[in-house]
């Protein structure tokens, strides 16, 4: 039974990593083939760093992810505070239902619906070329917001309302009480929401595809336009670098967690 378990988990992981192993291997290929390996070379990595358009797309992606996650975090945290204060009732359930829509709906419908809104506004006001950085930012903030709200709300629920009252009795203004009592207590939820928003924004292709214009390209959009023709291995090189970066981040994350638990253990 145990060997079967091990064999099975190994098989699943092989399935999950097969295409990644392939793209790492062929990022070192000498020729531009992505199916026949003819020899080791680093030329695609050099090519990548000379590919201005791809680097520009990478830069755009990061800017968009930072901006959209920060805006979504501010709007979403404020929204969660407001929703938390609302009494349970029809208004609150309507707001929660609409908040859930972008998470539950198919990405393609979210993308198409935003595109139609932008196009509609453009035709009414006679604006041409409305799709671009602005619409992309709006779209990203929109699909990030639910994740922020739903990671902050549980933290607010756990917070003892008497704490804020105590702070006010001790002389804090409501705003000071909010800053000194509420914010520190919900900070972990706010950060989780922001990180989630950031990674969702980095990786999004489908919604961006409909909400963006020709002059502002993110990395997933760039990859898409390249896979329409033939992908050259420099895209594989870029993906390999991203993969390595993710691995390093996760390992660092695990190591720091281990340290923390070690400290806690020592204290006991």
């Amino acid at each position: 039974m145990k060997t079967i378990n091990k064999l099975y988990t190994a098989l699943i992981l092989i399935f999950m990593y097969a295409p990644i192993a392939v793209l790492i291997l062929f990022s070192f290929n000498e020729s531009n083939s992505t199916s026949v390996f003819s020899g080791f070379s680093l030329k695609w990595y050099i090519e990548l760093f000379n590919d201005g358009e791809t680097l520009k797309a990478l830069y755009n992606t990061l800017i968009l992810a930072v901006l959209s996650s920060v805006i979504a975090t501010i709007l979403g945290t404020a929204a969660a505070v407001g929703i938390d204060y609302m009494k349970k009732g029809p208004l609150r359930s309507i707001i929660m239902t609409i908040t859930n829509i972008p998470m539950m709906n198919a990405d393609i419908v979210t993308g198409v619906s935003l595109m139609l809104l932008f196009v509609f506004i453009a035709t009414i006001f006679g604006i041409s070329g409305i799709l671009g950085f602005g619409t992309l930012l709006i779209a990203h903030v929109t699909f990030n917001l639910p994740y922020v709200i739903l990671s902050v709300l549980p933290k607010l629920k756990q917070l003892d309302p008497h704490l804020t009252e105590a702070a006010q009795d001790l002389g804090c203004t409501p705003f000071q009480a909010f800053l000194k009592v509420v914010i520190p207590n919900i900070l972990s939820g706010v950060l989780t929401g922001m990180i989630m928003a950031f990674t969702l924004s980095l990786d999004d292709f489908v919604i961006s595809y409909f909400a963006s214009g020709p002059e502002f390209q993110t990395l997933p959009l760039r990859i898409f336009s390249m896979t329409k023709r033939r992908v050259t291995p420099d895209m594989y090189a870029l993906s390999t670098l991203i993969f390595v970066a993710i691995l390093i981040l996760l390992l660092l994350n695990n190591l720091t967690k281990k340290d923390e638990s070690g400290v806690k253990g020592a204290k006991k």
């Binding site: 979403g76 929204a79 407001g82 929703i83 204060y85 829509i101 972008p102």
Partner: peptide
């Protein structure tokens, strides 16, 4: 005041989640 914090989001939600549908 606390409930008003949700106002900007509600406006955003109406324009960019409900209206597109």
């Amino acid at each position: 005041w606390a409930r008003l914090c949700a106002a900007p989001y509600i406006v955003w939600m109406i324009i960019f989640i409900a209206a597109p549908l």
